[in-house]
């Protein structure tokens, strides 16, 4: 089956006094209706992938490689056709929901906006659809919340408004950039439910970006672990949580409270100056001499991809 989104050797660098390679050759693909989670520490380039797919990177960014969505090369589309895709077939939920809603408009108006812009249908009143969408994300009195302004609402409510806004047109790919950030466990469960129950759920593929492993575990079909701008492990979620292969994945799972709360020593390397050889070697407990010199490749072992010499 042809994948819905196919990313191949995506490289992104930011120009500056010294160019910084943020992504160095990331490849993965998402099937229709599948949920892929990108996990990793802050600053390893997760959000950059999301922005690169949506083509929302600032002008200083140099993007190489290929991003194919349903066979169309997104990186070569002109801005007009890209705009038509955004919101309609590709949607993104940004970090920090309270900042992602315009403070001067009511929720109802903001929810109806994608309908008005993309469908150009003035006649069938969008408010019915808006009511339906709000109901689906768990508001039992939608007509009441439609008149609210974002500043009147809590972060969790705004997050759900955003999910409703992004999914109101039933996109085929939804990118959720840290939807659980800054929310307490109860709200996270709500967001989780909304991500499962939004209008297009089931046929919408989800690219989930998060560093909350528990959240990811409940939602994802596949997991890609990123470290310092590259994927170090790519596996089915069930396999990954049962037996992580890469030392970094082991460390991530080991640092969870339920697994003993053992942090990974050291801190993530700066992307402007990555270490030689395996990028994880300064923090790796199993490091060998070879890890210092050679850069490992992403190896295919029994349907899983791992970037480590030590894995068979």
């Amino acid at each position: 089956m042809k994948p819905l989104l196919e990313i191949e050797k995506l490289r992104v660098s930011f120009e500056g006094e010294r160019p910084v390679n943020v992504l160095s050759g990331v490849s993965f693909s998402i099937q229709k209706g599948e949920t892929l989670a990108l996990v990793g520490e802050s600053g390893c380039g997760k959000s950059v992938i999301a922005h690169a797919v949506m083509r929302l990177l600032p002008s200083e960014a140099r993007v190489k490689g290929s991003v194919r969505f349903k066979g169309t090369e997104l990186l070569e589309l002109d801005e007009k056709r890209m705009s038509a895709l955004r919101g309609n077939e590709l949607a993104i939920i940004f970090q920090n929901p309270s900042h992602a809603l315009n403070p001067v408009y009511s929720i109802g108006r903001q929810l109806a906006e994608p309908l008005r812009v993309h469908q150009k249908q003035g006649k069938p009143d969008p408010s019915q659809k808006v009511l339906k969408a709000l109901k689906q994300v768990g508001f039992s009195r939608p007509e009441h919340y439609m008149k609210y302004y974002p500043s009147w609402c809590s972060g969790g409510m705004n997050q759900r408004f955003l999910i409703a806004t992004s999914t109101i047109l039933g996109p085929e790919l939804l990118i959720a950039d840290e939807p659980s950030k800054g929310l307490d466990p109860d709200r996270i469960k709500e967001v989780e439910r909304e991500l499962r129950a939004h209008p297009g759920a089931g046929k919408t593929a989800l690219l989930l970006i998060s560093h909350d492993l528990g959240f990811v575990r409940r939602l994802a079909d596949k997991i890609a672990v990123m470290y310092s701008g590259e994927i170090v492990e790519l596996a089915e979620a069930a396999d990954f949580f049962e037996q992580p292969l890469h030392p970094y994945s082991l460390g991530l799972l080991g640092s969870l409270p339920e697994n003993g709360f053992v942090p990974i020593p050291g801190s993530a390397p700066a992307l402007s100056d990555p270490p030689s050889g395996c990028r994880f070697h300064p923090r790796c407990p199993y490091g060998e001499k070879r890890c210092l010199q050679e850069h490992p490749r992403l190896k295919d072992t029994k349907g899983r991809f791992v970037r480590c010499f030590l894995c068979p």
Binding site: L56, A84, R86, G87, N96, L101, V104, E113, H118, T165
Partner: peptide, 26 residues
């Protein structure tokens, strides 16, 4: 650079639409 303009772009609104409905009122 604010979140709502970014998400408006993410929803595929045209620059003119963003300027008139998101930036001017602010």
């Amino acid at each position: 650079e604010s979140g709502y303009v970014k998400s408006a772009r993410g929803m595929g609104f045209s620059p003119f639409h963003i300027m008139s409905t998101d930036i001017i009122p602010n």
